[in-house]
Design a protein around this nucleic acid. Structure first.
Lengths: 166, 166
DNA sequence: TTAAACTTTCAATTATTTCTGAAAGTTTTT
DNA sequence: AAAAACTTTCAGAAATAATTGAAAGTTTAA
């Protein structure tokens, strides 16, 4: 497959994947574009490449920087801002895990700890509390595992796999 | 906290969580409702509890059944259909992992295998191919780990944690 | 076979999210 | 201090997704 076609296809696919995980398409596409570009790009270049507006690029670049996935690069002698994305895919995954944990896993743990001792009679209430406890246990464990992953070096995953396979 | 309040709060939070993971709110809420109900519910009951329309319940119940998260229950002597959700939270997580893997991880692996040997000259193309290879390696590993999880018994997770902690 | 009970479908509406583009804001240069 | 180069904001427009509700479809009972 020819390079330009391949590039477009990858950006497109990455955008779709992001969508189905609750990340806006343009945001994923900008990220994909910056990942596959060796050199940093300007807002103008991103606009041209993805055919989207200045406002859209600005907004999503900022979101990507908040997620810690994209950095502003200062090119000496240039006034424009350049943007680049981290190229280490493990680090990218860890960063995403970290942000999603903070934004989504932790809030749900909060809610569950609030509701898990509901007051009332009957097996309905009992069952509810039992279920909440189970969900809390599960989520805490997922949370701990995410932490391990977030703090891990690149080899953690391999080690884990090896352990599981033996 | 009083039971009814706790229940409402949990359903609400679960719906929000679902949203941010690309799952429609009503679908998550129905799932939450069925999880915390000991007895199966009818379409009418779900409509009343969540204040949503018949069409909406029907559509999302069917989606939940496709995901393998909800079952139709036949109550002897009753014409209406009753629905219930699996109560084992580990099994629920495995089922969700399975479906998302099939729907989202596998398609992206397909695309990457298509684009990873882009033709062209220059370091741009070389870098692109290197990056695609990295992403493919990563994704394959994630895929394998998901498989382990999907096929695991409830103790896998505990075992893994223990291994990591020692 | 007709009616009643129940489920499914889907066109139209409503809600939500995303995007645009022009104006306002900021910083640097002349 | 004015202009030029660039970035940010945000109200409205457009696109997308979710929801309704009534009609059509199906199954069971009378």
């Amino acid at each position: 497959m020819e390079f330009e076609t391949a590039k477009a296809k990858f950006i497109q696919a990455w955008g779709t994947l992001g969508s189905s995980w609750g990340i806006n398409r343009t945001m994923s596409q900008i990220h994909a574009l910056l990942i596959i570009n060796t050199d940093p790009l300007t807002t103008e270049e991103i606009m041209a490449e993805l055919k989207v507006s200045r406002g859209n690029v600005n907004m999503n670049i900022r979101a990507l920087m908040e997620w810690g996935l994209v950095n502003k690069e200062l090119v000496p002698g240039e006034r424009k801002e350049y943007f680049s994305a981290g190229k280490d895919i493990w680090q990218v995954a860890r960063q995403i895990a970290k942000e999603r944990k903070r934004r989504e896993v932790e809030p749900i743990l909060d809610v569950i700890s609030q509701v898990k001792n509901a007051e009332g009679d009957g097996k309905e209430v009992e069952e509810f509390n039992r279920m909440m406890q189970e969900i809390e246990d599960f989520t805490s464990k997922a949370d701990t595992t995410l932490d391990k992953f977030i703090k891990s070096d690149e080899n953690w995953f391999y080690k884990t796999l090896l352990t599981l396979m033996k």
